[in-house]
Design a binder for these strands. Structure first.
Length: 544
RNA sequence: GCGCCCGUAGCUCAACCGGAUAGAGCAACUGCCUUCUAAGCAGUAGGUUUCAGGUUCGAGUCCUGACGGGCGUACCA
């Protein structure tokens, strides 16, 4: 529908001698039904460049407009210069049949077709279980990936991690200390060690498996770290699976050392005069890119800071041929990615292919107070614990329902109590209700006969119809902005229109002709909700 | 100090690239179940969009400044 309108408007512009390319045609559904089925503000946006009053431009546009009156019933100018369109009934009914035909694919579009994209998310190092702090990242990344798939892209989900370095060393030492404790042997717990109970679990498993065999191994023996990494990664993968998330690839930072790309980045930056030695360290000249200070790439100990592999990693992604690489970053990474971009650009890469999505932190509220989490100190609420309480649907929905760019307050008590008050049930309930009616209707009516859609004349029916048709646009808009919450807002509208329809229009007991037409509408609404929930990674139950 | 993000109803949040009368949920109040799921529907109340300027046909949205909150500003990740 949108495509057709864009087309006829572009044609009209051409007739008026206006460059349609630069005009940026926007079609939107007006808030108020009296303002038509869809509207465009085209005349208003053109007012500045054409130096004419919006009303006059709207007049010209409407005069130049040629449209198929089996599709468009009316076109009128209103307010400051909006052009409002109303659809012809037959066109609406054609669209409805089309929705039913598309079924499980309704909502897909080709705005990103042919594109190879990658979404990198979660990317938590295996030092502990995933916490609610990681939840927003995980769920955002996965739903954005799904949105992109629905707009035609081929998408890889990637988890980037590092199992070397100080963090992991301390993790190994923590496990060893607990292991020794279990054996009643002497060992000091590292000062900044990981205090969580899961460390004891890992140590206990080692003790069960090896007895005291490991006690005489040197402190630095990798067995402890390895056991921890394996166990924790198993746990993380299990958590992701519970959340409906499947990664295509786990990328170990270690690869970047092995294949020489770390060294390559340093030497190439040196060649460009952007890296130099000072005080035994290697520095990146970030002052060249407007920063106050230069940045250390390799510490005087010879160990790289995390920034260097970050740069090499992004270059690896670009080399792998992705058209777009999306990073899902928490606000704490906000300062690091400009360096990555600067470096990649300096090395000749098209950095417009890197798309960094920063989301704001989640404030955990526990017992009415903000709660500071720390993996190391084992102050955390894990995603598993949360899902034990409220399930994965509520968990996903909670993280998705707000704009990524604003702070999200997560009240544990509320999420637990919320239960049936939770807005996710509003959507699921609508879907379940639809299927409940369909089950009943199938017993009474010949639901596979061709319906006479012309009978759908009630205002609640047409409101629902028009809402359903917005679905592909809603998916595309959410994908474009990488903001799944837009889809939730849309689905809420669909559900609201459905519930209203349910209240106003009955099916069982109606004349078969009318009932069949309404069943068709019901199916279309059901398809929309089911497909939308799938993009959010949330169940669409047929019974509740 | 400097940089980035945020500030909208009592609370949690929407508002699509600057568009028509700023919307939901929760909490409060009033109606609606002998008929397809009341986890629902209809309605009442609640706002100087933190404040002060500016840009223009038009500002919650853009610019400047102030105030308030978050996150950065490491040879930590």
């Amino acid at each position: 529908m949108t495509t057709y309108l864009e087309q006829i408007l572009a044609d009209a512009l051409k007739r008026l001698g206006v460059d349609a390319e630069s005009a940026n045609i926007q079609i939107e559904k007006p808030r108020i039904p009296e303002h038509g089925d869809v509207a465009t503000n085209l005349a208003l946006t053109l007012a500045k460049t054409l130096k004419k009053s919006p009303r006059a431009i709207a007049d010209d546009l409407v005069n130049a407009l040629e449209y198929d009156d089996t599709k468009i019933r009316s076109v009128e100018i209103a307010g400051p210069g909006f052009i409002n369109f109303r659809f012809a009934n037959n066109w609406i009914f054609d669209q409805l049949s089309d929705v039913l035909k598309q079924g499980h694919d309704f909502g897909r579009s080709d705005t990103n077709s042919g594109k190879k994209m990658q979404v990198e998310f979660v990317s938590a190092n295996p030092t502990g279980p995933l916490t609610v702090g990681h939840g927003r990242n995980a769920v955002l990344g996965d739903s954005i990936a799904r949105l992109l798939e629905w707009t035609g892209a081929q998408v890889d989900r990637e988890y980037y991690f590092n199992n070397a370095g100080r963090q992991m060393r301390v993790l190994g030492e923590s496990v060893r200390a607990r292991y020794m404790e279990i054996l009643d042997r002497e060992a000091s717990f590292p000062e900044d060690g990981y205090q969580g109970e899961y460390i004891r679990d890992i140590a206990r498993k080692l003790a069960d498996e090896y007895g005291d065999e490991l006690a005489d191994k040197p402190e630095t023996d990798p067995v402890f770290k390895q056991a921890a990494e394996d166990a924790i990664f198993d746990d993380i993968k299990n958590t992701l699976e519970r959340m409906n998330i499947t990664m295509d690839q786990f990328f170990n930072e270690h690869n970047l050392y092995e294949d020489g790309s770390i060294d390559r980045v340093v030497s190439q930056l040196r060649e460009k005069g952007l890296a130099y030695d000072r005080d035994g360290a290697v520095w990146f000249k970030t002052t060249e890119f407007g920063k106050d200070k230069d940045t250390v790439l390799i510490k005087s100990t010879g160990e790289p800071t995390y920034r260097l592999p970050d740069i090499a990693y992004h270059i690896s992604k670009l080399d792998r041929g992705y058209d777009i690489c999306i990073d899902i970053f928490g606000a704490d990474h906000i300062a690091t990615y400009p360096d990555v971009i600067s470096a990649a650009k300096a090395l000749g890469y098209d950095t417009s292919r890197i798309d960094v999505q920063v989301y704001q932190f989640v404030t955990i509220v526990k017992e009415g107070k903000p709660f500071k989490m720390s993996t190391r100190k084992a102050n955390f609420v894990t995603l598993d614990e949360l899902m034990d309480e409220v399930g994965s649907d509520v968990t996903r929905f909670f993280f998705l329902m707000r704009t990524p760019g604003t702070h999200l307050e997560f009240d544990i008590a509320e999420a637990k109590e919320a239960g049936e008050k939770n807005p996710v049930f509003y959507l699921q309930y609508a879907h379940a209700r639809i299927h409940s009616i369909l089950r009943k209707a199938e017993e009474t009516y010949e639901t596979d006969t061709e319906p006479n859609l012309g009978l759908l004349t009630h205002s609640s029916e047409s409101a629902l119809l028009k809402e359903v048709f917005q679905f592909p646009d809603a998916v595309a808009a959410a994908a474009k902005h990488r903001e799944p919450h837009r889809l939730i807002n849309y689905l809420n509208e669909v559900a609201a229109h459905f519930h209203k329809f349910y209240h106003d229009c009955r099916i069982m007991g109606e004349e078969p002709e009318l009932a069949l037409a309404r069943i068709a509408l019901l199916k279309a609404a059901g398809i929309t909700l089911a497909n939308g929930l799938e993009i959010l990674g949330i169940e669409a139950p047929e019974r509740m």
